[in-house]
């Protein structure tokens, strides 16, 4: 389970989308989100469906993983659909009398809006999770660092942000293990984390949290000493083992997405 955390949702693979540059993928994902909220016409939704299906196919990510990513969103998706279905005013096609002047109504407009809303949210989740499904967290951090680099001039510490993320990713499993260890050690000394009312339970957290913080400080101190003694000094002039390189693939992906956006926008204007 701990290993799952650091990998995130990443599914290793060799597909076209996996091999795209992380920077390109991040930018294109933003374009995808923006265009999704611009479109309004039914035909554009149809085109978008095809486009998303094509992306999923190209990524070669097993469909099960994508469905797994949808699971936490299930509630909000169904909630949205149901609310829109019953709350939209318009031409009634089905109604159910409850009591007094209260009745449930489904309207033609309600069905249309519910379906479009559902599709919009669905594609938002699928499209964006494709980014995290095909890019490992470390590659994403690298990509973010590179994308933030132009903002260095106005004082955004891009390298430091990326380094902090890497440190956090590296230490999540370690600290989770540490928490577990301290919990067991305190239980062996008679600490009780599982009974009593809420105040008592919350109080029981103190003997867990104080050692946890102290040990985190100690770790941070050790790491700082180790980095300083190796003369670490941040991003300037630092070389990397794996250089990020945009290839013909990235150009193709960029061109396809641009073309697709143009088609959608033209549709939107004409219709």
């Amino acid at each position: 389970m701990l290993k799952d955390i650091t990998l995130g949702q990443y599914v290793p693979g060799e597909s076209f989308i996996h091999k795209l540059d992380a920077r390109v993928k991040i930018v294109l994902t933003f374009v995808y989100i923006i265009i999704l909220f611009i479109i309004d016409q039914t035909i554009n939704y149809a085109l978008f469906t095809i486009f998303t299906a094509m992306l999923v196919f190209l990524s070669r990510v097993p469909i099960g993983f994508i469905l797994k990513g949808l699971k936490p969103m299930l509630f909000i998706l169904s909630f949205t659909a149901v609310i829109n279905l019953f709350m939209t005013q318009g031409e009634t096609i089905w109604s159910y009398h409850i009591v007094g002047s209260w009745s449930l109504e489904i309207t033609k407009e309600g069905i249309v809006i519910a379906v479009l809303m559902l599709l919009r949210l669905l594609y938002l989740v699928i499209g964006t999770s494709l980014l995290t499904l095909t890019t490992s967290p470390l590659m994403l951090t690298d990509g973010i660092e590179k994308l933030l680099e132009p903002f260095k001039k106005i004082g955004v510490p891009s390298h430091e942000i990326a380094m902090m993320m890497t440190i956090a990713i590296r230490f999540i499993p370690t600290l989770a293990e540490e928490t577990d260890k301290i919990m067991k050690a305190q239980m062996a000394r008679g600490a009780d984390f599982e009974s009593g009312n809420i105040v008592r339970r919350a109080k029981a957290m103190i003997p867990l949290l104080v050692p946890l913080f102290v040990s985190a400080f100690r770790r941070a101190d050790d790491l700082a000493v180790a980095m300083e003694s190796r003369c670490y000094r941040g991003g300037d002039n630092r070389t990397r083992m794996k250089q990020m390189k945009a290839t013909y693939r990235d150009a193709v992906a960029g061109a396809v997405v641009t073309l697709f956006c143009l088609v959608l926008i033209v549709n939107e204007i004409i219709l």
Partner: peptide, 28 residues
């Protein structure tokens, strides 16, 4: 800054929010 990093990592797909993670969390 540290909370910002946490938020960023969660959005980048690590399942570290209360109910998982991923960019889709923004619409929650």
């Amino acid at each position: 800054c540290s909370v910002f990093i946490y938020m960023f990592l969660g959005l980048a797909g690590l399942p570290i929010f209360t109910e998982g993670g991923g960019i889709g969390y923004i619409i929650k």
